[in-house]
Structure formats: C-alpha cells, structure tokens
Design a protein around this nucleic acid. Structure first.
Lengths: 350, 350
DNA sequence: TTGAAAGCGCTAACAG
DNA sequence: CTGTTAGCGCTTTCAA
C-alpha cells in the first residue's frame, strides 16, 4: 500500500502515461529511487555503479526520458548548434554548401539552424540576430550584407565564418573562398587557345567582381583587347540574366564566345542562343562558372568551371568548430576545376 | 565616487567590454537600476513606463544585450523551433521543400533545424531523436524509416508532419502528399494519345510504388497491355538509374516511349539515349516525373510532371504550426502539372 | 559511488 | 508601474 501511495504521489504518469509534457530528470530520479545527480551522471558519462545505472536506464526507458537540451544548454552555456545563412537554398551551389556543413557538423555532434536571406541585407541581419539569441556556437554565412553589419555580429561575441565572400575589414571573421580567379583564368586561356579573340563576359557587376577582374586580367596578359561592348552586367536572377543574354546575342556584337559568370546566366545564354538558332559551338562557344548538374545534360554539354560547394561548407564548418584558436593565417582558398565538354570550339572563320 | 564604486563592482565590462560571455538580464537590470522583471517586460511586451523603458533600452544597447532564447525556452517550455528532415538537401525537390518550410516558418516566427538522413533509417531516427532532445515544437520529414519508428516519435509527444510519404498506421501524423497518381496518369494518357503502345516504366520499386501503380492502372484503363519487360526497377541514384536505363535501351526491347519515375532516372535515360545515338523524340520519346530546372535546358526540352515542392513544404509547416488541433481530415493532396515540351512525339512507324 | 544544493537566464505570479 | 521570488531541466561542486 505504501507503494501505491508513492505512485499516487508521482501522479498519473505511471500507467498509460498520457502524452503530457516530457519526463524530466526528476521523474526518472524518483522512478529509479536515486538522486537527480545520479541520473545526470548516467546520461552525461559520469561514474555510476553498474547496478544503479541499470536501474536508471530502466526507469528512463519506461518513462521515455530524453535529456532536455534546453536545460543542458542553459547550464553549459553552449548549445551545440551552429547557424547557417545562405542566399537561397534552392541554388545548387548553396545546396552543396549546406550538405557540406551538415556533413561536418555531424562529425562534431552539432546541429544546424538554417535560414535564407534572399539577397536582403536587413533580413540577413535579422536572421543573424535571431541566431545569436538562440546562442548558436557560431555562424556560417554566405554574407550579402555590409561588412559593418557582420562586424557588429562578431563584436557581439559570435564566431563567424564567411564563405564565398570577403568581408573587408573584419579580421576576426574566418573566410573560405573559392578560387574563381584561377577558374576564370583557365577558362579564358582555354578560349583564347581555341582561337577566340572576341570573348563576351556576361554577368559583370555585383557578386561577380572577382570573376570579371580575372577575365580582364587574363585577357590583358594574353594580349587580347577587351571590347567593352562585350562586357555586360547581369544579376544572377533569371530575368536579369535572360535580358542580358538576349541583349548581347541579339545585337550581333560579334562575340565568338560567351563566358557566363554564373550558372543562371549560363542557362540564359544557352536558351537565348537556341532561340536565335545559333549553333553551339559552331556559331558561338558558351562556357560558364558553376558546374551545375544540367551542364552535362545540355546539348552540347556545357564546358564549365566547377566550384566545390560541398568542400567549402565542410571546411567552413571545420574552421568554425575545430580551429577555435583564431590564429588561422589568411582565408582558405579552394581550387576550382575546369570541366571541358562540348560547348566550346574554334571560332567560325569570318 | 559612489558611482565609481558601483562600476567597479559591476566588473570589467563597462569600458572596452571584452568579448566575454553575453550580457544577461541581470546585467541590464543593474545597469538600468531596475529589477530584472522590468527588463523582461520591456523585451517581452509587458507594460512599462516610457521613462523606465527608455532607460532599460539604453542600458541594453550599451551592453549589447540579447535576451537568451535558451533561458526563455526553458521557462516557456517551448523553443519556437521546428525540425526538418529530408533525404538529401541537394535534391531539387528537397531544396524546394526546404525553401517552402523556411518561408512559412518565418511567418510564424519559428526557426528551423535541418538535417539530412541520406536514405538511412537509423540515421533518420537518430536525427529525430536529437531534435526531440532539442525540444523542437514539431518535426517535418520526408520519412524513409519504418512507420513504427515514427510512431514512437509521436508517442514521445512530438507533432510530426510527413511529406511525400505515407506512414501507414499512424493516424496522428499529418500528411502532405503530391498527387503523383494524377500526374502519371496525365503523362500516360498523353503518351498513349500520341500513339504509343509500348511504353517503358523506368524506376519501378521502392519510393515510386504509387507512380508505378498509376502507370499500370492508367494503361489498363486505356486498354493497353503492360509488357513486363518494359517495367524496370531502379533506385533514384545516379548509378542505379544509369544501369537501369542502359539495360533497357541497349537491349532494344522495343519501347517507343520511356517514362522515368524520377528526375535522376530521367537524366540517365537522356544520357543513355544520347550515347546510343537515339534521337529524341524521333526514335524514342522520353518523359519524367519531376520538373527540375534542366528539363528546359535539355535538347529537346524534356516533358515532365512538375511537383510542387515549395508548396508542399509551406503547407506542411502550416499544418504543423497552425492546425494544432489534430482534427484535420485526411492528407493534404497537392496537384501536379504536366509540362509538355519537345521530348515526346508520335512513335516511329515500324 | 551517491545525494543535496546552487545556479545557468528567463518569465510569471504575487506583493507592494 | 515595479520588484521579489520561485522554478523551468540540467550539471557540478561539495559532502557524506
């Protein structure tokens, strides 16, 4: 009867434990007849006698107990989670990046909070803020906002790793970069080697400045003049890319090859070329930065510069989690790979 | 001098506040000369006099204070986060789904924990478990594990929404489905209407059972016999898909059209057809389920059944967050759309 | 090996 | 309107 009384005191949760709030460490302790400290030890690897441990585990199983990460985080002052902010989850590069972060995070036993900023700096800042409130152990971002905004995030005590963008004047922010310069250089050398002299660059401006620079520099090194008419701005969005591609190709500017600064722009170039009945590569060669999956499916398959998104994410996460000593020298630079397919050939003899 | 003493007592954090641990509600209260409850009210919308509020806000700004979501979660017994488990972030459908969830979660002010199970049921279960420990307010998943495993998750008190899979025998689990049956039916009707009688189904088995069923049923309804030689199994992975496509197309089974059950399988079919120098659609028509971006870039552009991934994610999240009353009748069924492009034509006269 | 107790940052009930 | 206080679930000294 004493036993019955005890159960009564413990509440309705014994038999038919309704899906009420989850069991707590106290419930388990009571059920196992031990102190809560012992239960804690069982679950966080302290030393407990085999006998006691078994009893605790049994009770925990009975109650379907899971230690609350919230309670633990509060005590430990770290959550074991990291924040990841990308421009757009559906972009193949971002998707690879996310996969990389997830893979690495898993090896560290960290979980990942994800959000997308969609090119909106204010939104990005709000997301970062929220993640700080969640007390993530660090933030990985493909930042679109101003360096100042991110500097304030690190000032607030966050560890942040920037991927694929350099945040000028923020030495505390570790950076993982992809060597687009080398990639573009290889591509330009390839095109020039094929005999092209009038190479268009599609997608100048904003996020692709480094690529444009590499384009100009390489051409200069090779002694090929840049025709400014062939350098056209485009944002990496379908409408902008399409407009730019159509503008370039329709006006018959005499480009024998088109270098698209990104995969969306490459997509537009392919589409426009097809609509204008330009044969690739007979009439015009096309190549792009970003080796997305359709490049191989295209007809002809598109030559492209592959960018290691998965690696970038993985490395970024490693940087964030492993090298807690800030002293990492300079940004990590990841190599690209020129994937030559069938979309580039010698220019048509005019 | 009294002032000086106070600052001294407050510690080193006044001037040049080193990036120590983040300021707490206590710090702010002390700095503003109010009680912690008042600070709490300022930040969680209680009533505070304008004057006091200003002082608190000033102090908080000075200290760069952000309320800790961990503390709040512990007190409130809810974290404001939801878990999202997909098979693979880099799959275009999953990416759309994630974007949808993110969009919806934002309108509810919830954050999202993401992880990928990669077809591994055990890993999926571990992820779900971890999310439960994090005390997410609910879990959205494209489940790959057994219904039993998920039933135990809901038994543990979690709200879960299943997307794109039905978890048999788990009435508590809300479900968002995509009407693949209708999509495949439309596609088959289209092909039969074009004159095809020997239609191959590539990708029978595992995750595509509903699609295969719809394939068979529709053919039966239209009075067209199914040649079992033309129904070949394939998992939605590149190697398996490729093997299946090559197997089918190389043996010259006499299929005049190929229906690929997924985009990876469609990709394989396109590649194999190209290698075998089969003209599309002159020699063989190809269509697939899943309208990924390359379908339009392909040559010829591929006819496909578009599946609303973004919508599915959005609706799933809504279901999880809005309709907290379980009484939702049956699964949500989202319509597909048949996108007709150039990859299907009348069969070659033999 | 084990238990009691303090305290992580916060909210809410209760006084004043 | 404001402050005091208890307590959310957990880890971790400190004793026993």
């Amino acid at each position: 009867m004493a036993g019955t009384t005890e159960r009564g005191e413990a509440g309705e949760r014994g038999p038919g434990r309704r899906a009420g709030r989850p069991a707590t460490i106290k419930d388990v302790a009571a059920a196992a007849g031990v102190g809560i400290a012992t239960v804690s030890r069982v679950f966080s690897g302290g030393s407990v006698s085999a006998d006691t441990r078994a009893r605790v585990l049994a009770a925990a199983g009975e109650l379907d107990y899971r230690p609350s990460a919230v309670g633990r985080s509060l005590k430990l002052q770290r959550t074991g989670g990291i924040g990841l902010i990308v421009p757009d989850v559906t972009d193949p590069f971002c998707a690879d990046l996310i996969a990389g972060v997830l893979d690495c995070a898993r090896t560290f036993g960290e979980h990942v909070l994800l959000d997308a900023a969609h090119g909106d700096a204010a939104r990005e800042a709000a997301i970062a803020d929220r993640m700080m409130e969640q007390r993530v152990d660090g933030i990985i971002a493909v930042p679109e906002g101003a360096p100042a905004a991110w500097r304030s995030v690190v000032a607030a005590g966050a560890r942040v790793v920037s991927v694929d963008r350099v945040l000028a004047g923020a030495p505390e922010i570790l950076t993982v970069l992809i060597d687009d310069r080398a990639g573009v250089r290889a591509l330009v050398e390839y095109l020039v080697g094929l005999g092209h002299r009038r190479i268009a660059f599609l997608g100048a401006g904003a996020p692709a400045v480094a690529r444009e620079r590499a384009f100009r520099d390489t051409l200069a090194q090779l002694g090929v003049a840049v025709d400014e008419d062939l350098v056209v701005a485009a944002r990496p969005e379908r409408d902008s890319a399409y407009a730019a591609a159509a503008g370039l190709l329709q006006r018959q500017a005499g480009a024998s090859a088109v270098l698209a600064a990104g995969h969306l722009i490459g997509e537009a170039a392919v589409l426009v070329a097809r609509e204008l009945d330009l044969r690739v590569p007979a009439d015009v060669s096309i190549a792009m930065v970003g080796d997305v999956s359709w490049a191989e499916l295209c007809d002809p398959p598109l030559t492209a510069v592959a960018r290691p998104g998965h690696d970038a994410g993985y490395r970024a996460c490693e940087l964030l989690l492993r090298d807690r000593a800030r002293a990492v020298g300079g940004p990590v630079l990841l190599p690209t790979e020129l994937v030559i397919r069938g979309s580039c050939g010698p220019p048509r003899r005019s």
